[in-house]
Structure formats: structure tokens, C-alpha cells
């Protein structure tokens, strides 16, 4: 399958608005040296704890913010070197659905206006044609035509998320960033939206970057999973590898403590000490060494581990990871 998206050594630093007496400027190192690819038709999960940089990666891909360093290419085109006309074309191929269905829809616009807005900006569709496309989309996400003239506050969380999905799909994108699309929803409604996301992928041959901190949902939906810690990707692998044969000590701990909704599966939990360090003062060497139960070697404090290829598309950034021959 062809590569849709490729990130190479992407970094994003945000300047902190700290006290003016400080002479040295400080930075939140939100994303550090991130590289990965996503292939056509895949669902790739991006997981990690709050503040590890997931949304920032998503926003860079969507070109909502510029990276401090590194390249992002979409179908072999460098997103940050495109000229205006090409950029417009490329951008139409990408869509996004955010977590919060309450704040992501403009409360003063009707559903018709919300879904039609990107069409008005990016296409020449007008009048009846425009309306037809909107109705078609609403049907696709399981909403009825009578929604058109209603406003976001009249809908439940799950319905609003359907509206957000319709809007994201209106320009026929090939790739969607789904940033915690079901985190604000109740389980019964989450199931409806997850099923919809899966069905749409099959129907429209979509590629997904699925960002979430709910590992069970990611296990269910993703083909491959990337695990982030303090701005870096520490492990990439198939869903099976990440869940059943994790290598990185952080992934191992993370997977071991997920509360599983099943009473038969009692597992040995690995508890991490302490809290995640601040992304302003990232620990030296491997940024996980302060909490890592396996770190004993001096090298962990000193050297930053790079992502090693263990074969079978399994990559791990840990000094202890061994490449099998």
C-alpha cells in the first residue's frame, strides 16, 4: 500500500510565558524528533498520557500549526513547501474530528450551514446541488433530513459528533485525523460512533490517524499503534505486538494497568512510580529513565535511545531493546 503521510524528525517547541525576570527563554518541548508513516487505508492509533503531544502532532499534520523543525509530506508533497493553489488542493484531502462535540460546532449556525461551509469555501457548488450533497452526507452519518434547519444545541453529544463527522467528510477527503472522537461520549453512544467510523472507512476507503488515551478503544479500532511519552514516540508496532508483545518498558507498564472490562483476565500490573516530568525540563538521556523499572544502565541517563527497527514493522526506542537476527 502506498504511503499517504510521512513525518520526518518533526519537532514542536512552544515558548513558555514564564516570569519576565528569567533571562533564559524556556520551551515546552511538546513534540521531539517524531518520524512515522501512514499507509493508505490504515487506521493508526496514537496513544499516550495527557500532555505527551498527541494533539500537537495532529495539528501539525493538518497544518494548523507549523513545526519548529522537520518535514511533513502528504502523498509525497512537502506540506510546508506547497504553493497556495496546490495547498488548497491537498488540504481538501484531509479532514479532522475533535473530541468536544460541544465546542467544535458553531452554535449560531444551522446544521445545513455547518456542513455546507467547507463546500462554499472550496467548491463552486450552489443551491440545490449544495443542498443535495449536504443531505447525502447527513444520511451517510445516520441523521435525517429534518436536521438541516436545526441548531447544535438541539442535538445530543453523539448526534453532534455525527454532524462533526459529516462536516469532516464533505470535501471527500482521503485522510482523517480523529482526535479523541468518542472521549466525551457515553459508552452506548460511543459504540454507535465507532461503528460509524469503521463503516465509513470501508465505504470511502479512508485512512485514519486515531488519537486517544482509551487504549481499549484503540486496540479495537487500530491496525497499528504508536506510543508517545513526553513528546517522543517510544514504540510503534501492530496492535498485536503492542498489546501482546510490548518491548518498551513504558508500553509494558501502560498496557499492564488498563482496567479491562472482563473478570477472567487478571494480569500482573506494573506500577510506575511518580508522575510524568514536565515537558519544559525533560530528563536527560532516555526521558523515561526517571520512572523506568528496568533502567539500570548508565547509558539510559546519558544517551537518547533512537527508534530501532526490530523487524516486522516493530520499532522501539529503548537501549535494552535487542534486534533479533
Amino acid at each position: 500500500m502506498s504511503v499517504v503521510l510521512k513525518l520526518t524528525n518533526v519537532r514542536k517547541y512552544f515558548p513558555t510565558t514564564k516570569s519576565f525576570s528569567q533571562r533564559k527563554k524556556e520551551y515546552v518541548k511538546a513534540v521531539e524528533d517524531v518520524s512515522f508513516i501512514i499507509r493508505e487505508g490504515e487506521t493508526v492509533g496514537l496513544v499516550g498520557e495527557s500532555g505527551c503531544g498527541k494533539t500537537t502532532v495532529g495539528r501539525i499534520i493538518l497544518r494548523l500549526i507549523a513545526p519548529t523543525a522537520g518535514q511533513v509530506s502528504f502523498r509525497d508533497q512537502d506540506l510546508f513547501a506547497l504553493r497556495k493553489e496546490e495547498l488548497r488542493k491537498t488540504r481538501k484531502k484531509m479532514g479532522v474530528v475533535f473530541q468536544d462535540p460541544y465546542s467544535s460546532l458553531n452554535p449560531r449556525m444551522s446544521i445545513q450551514e455547518i456542513v455546507a461551509e467547507p463546500l462554499k469555501i472550496h467548491t463552486n457548488l450552489k443551491g440545490l446541488e449544495l443542498q443535495e450533497r449536504v443531505v447525502e452526507l447527513l444520511k451517510q452519518v445516520g441523521l435525517k433530513e429534518d436536521c438541516l434547519r436545526r441548531y447544535p444545541h438541539e442535538f445530543s453529544g453523539g448526534q453532534r459528533q455525527r454532524i462533526a463527522i459529516a462536516r469532516a467528510l464533505v470535501l471527500n477527503p482521503a485522510f482523517l485525523v480523529l482526535d479523541e472522537p468518542t472521549s466525551a461520549l457515553d459508552v452506548s453512544v460511543q459504540a454507535q460512533v465507532l461503528n460509524l467510523i469503521i463503516e465509513l472507512q470501508k465505504e470511502l476507503n479512508l485512512t485514519y490517524l486515531f488519537i486517544s488515551h482509551d487504549l481499549i478503544v484503540v486496540e479495537y479500532i487500530a491496525d497499528r499503534i504508536m506510543v508517545m511519552y513526553l513528546g517522543r514516540i517510544v514504540e510503534i508496532g501492530s496492535t498485536d505486538k503492542i498489546f501482546n508483545h510490548p518491548i518498551h518498558p513504558y508500553t509494558k507498564a501502560l498496557i499492564s494497568v488498563i482496567p479491562i472490562p472482563d473478570i477472567c483476565q487478571q494480569r500482573k500490573e506494573i506500577f510506575l512510580e511518580g508522575d510524568v516530568p514536565s515537558p519544559v525540563n525533560v530528563p536527560s538521556g532516555c526521558s523515561f529513565h526517571t520512572r523506568c523499572p528496568e533502567a539500570k544502565e548508565e547509558v539510559c541517563k546519558r544517551e537518547i535511545p533512537i527508534l530501532k527497527d526490530l523487524g516486522q514493522e516493530h520499532y522501539v526506542a529503548c537501549h535494552l531493546a535487542k534486534v533479533e537476527s
Binding site: 445530543s156 453523539g158 448526534q159 457515553d186 459508552v187 452506548s188 453512544v189 460511543q190 459504540a191 454507535q192 465507532l194 461503528n195 469503521i198 481499549i216 478503544v217 486496540e219 479495537y220 479500532i221 498489546f243 479491562i260 472490562p261 472482563d262 483476565q265
Partner: peptide, 23 residues
Amino acid sequence: MGLLGAIPKLNQKEKLEVIKGSV
């Protein structure tokens, strides 16, 4: 039963069961 069917289990391949409508 609906709630239990609506949450994904590990290694689940089948479609999630859905409770229709909302509260």
C-alpha cells in the same frame, strides 16, 4: 447486557453492539 456489548473487549473482532437512541 447492552452496556456490556457496547464496550470493546480485548481481541474483539465483531462489530460492537449498539443500544439505539439516547437516554
